[in-house]
Computed example of a mutant assay.
Amino acid sequence: MGKQVKESLTVSPYLLWTLIHGTQMGSTLLIFQSRIINGAEMDSLFSFAAVGLSLHLIIAMMFYLLSHSTEGDIISLHNQLFGKWVGSLMTFVFYGYILLFIVNELRPYIEVIHVWVFPYTPLWSLSILFLLVASYIVSGGLRVITGICFFCVIIPSLLIPSLYFPLKQAHWTNFLPLFNHNAHQFAESAYHSLTTMLGVEFLLLLYPFIKNQEKSKKWAHIAVAHSTLIPLIIAFVSFSYFNIQELQHTIWPTLILSKIIRFPFLERFDYIYIFIWFFVIISACCVGLWGAIRILKKTIGIKSRPSLWITGGLVFVIMLPMKNPMMIEKLDSVLTLSGWILLYGYIPLLCAWMSLRRWFANKKSMHNEN
């Protein structure tokens, strides 16, 4: 079993659902439809569902690794498998990945705010504002972050009923013909689907902070299922409303769907949608910042507050040159590739290595007994 930290710092097993789901839901949920159609087009729903199902296997691998780690996280796991120096280097690579993850959550949302609401506000000032809010929340510790992530579970689910309005104008022929794409096209859509569900990898840092770690497994799987179901519903409604040509030229399909909602007392529902989504974005950023702080604290020994400002400063520096949508697209491409390498390459390799080490250790112990 992986080691658990002091009980006063831990959270209940069911709250792992909110932490993982809160990290998976983010800015990509506003734009993912126009990306996953690259390849299988309207059939990309099946590719997306396949990626969601495969993440359950990745979750099982993570639990296997963490249960045999000396301190129950990827930091100690790296030191255990690679030694102190190489292990620390691998951990810092993961730290760099977390920085990209945070930037990929903040920068696209800041672009939405800048284009839709405050077009004359400098991007750097919005970046500082969001980073300060996230830093303030993170300074309260993991339990405060967990409370914020709870909003991320509630808010996207409450917005699902608003999809009834575009569904009234659905064109069901958009889905026809079904299954008219080859395996390569389905694989291409699956590749672009992963960005929407990134966030499960933070289990590698959260595990020691969960009470009754064995009982937390089902909640991690529930989180992944929840994070798969909500985008599938949104994508289904989007595909029924937009045809393939419209989706290819729509930057924020989810926001466009919110624009058609009209009430006698409310004209711009999309503004409410945008500002409510702030809670969703900030949840993922807070978990990312917390994970980065944890790495600096355990690897270098820097205290939490300086680690927070160092990480926040690095995120701000990375965002500064991203002044156009093309840079945001490149960032998303880099993170997508990194996510595939981490989840479907690195994690299985670590599992294989851990299994071999345990097999040789058991064989050696049996030989010594004889």
Score class of each variant (00 low, 15 high):
S189P: 08
L356N: 06
S157D: 12
P177F: 05
I261Q: 04
A170M: 00
S216I: 09
Y344I: 08
F130Y: 04
H184M: 04
F202E: 05
V115K: 14
C286H: 04
F165C: 00
I137A: 10
I282T: 09
M42V: 15
H367F: 04
L57F: 03
T28I: 04
P306Y: 00
Y97P: 13
L16G: 11
G72H: 04
H171S: 03
S333I: 00
S27P: 06
S189M: 09
I102N: 07
N243R: 11
G26C: 01
H56D: 01
E111Y: 07
P119F: 11
P177C: 09
A361K: 09
T18S: 13
F275T: 10
R305L: 14
H114I: 00
E214H: 11
W353D: 01
F63S: 06
N212I: 11
I102D: 03
S67F: 10
W252M: 11
K323E: 13
L55T: 05
E41T: 08
V317Q: 06
N182G: 15
L99I: 14
L100A: 02
L229S: 06
L16F: 08
Y95V: 15
V200M: 06
E214W: 12
I230D: 07
I341Y: 07
Y346M: 08
G313M: 01
H249W: 06
I256Q: 06
F150T: 03
E267N: 08
S162G: 09
C351S: 12
F151Q: 09
I274G: 06
G87T: 00
T336Y: 00
M197V: 10
I318N: 07
R35A: 10
K217E: 12
K6N: 09
T121K: 12
G339Y: 05
Q80Y: 03
K211S: 13
F130V: 05
N182H: 15
G301L: 14
I244Q: 07
L176Q: 02
S27G: 07
V200D: 02
I234F: 01
L206W: 10
H221S: 13
Y191V: 11
S193Q: 12
L308Y: 04
H249T: 12
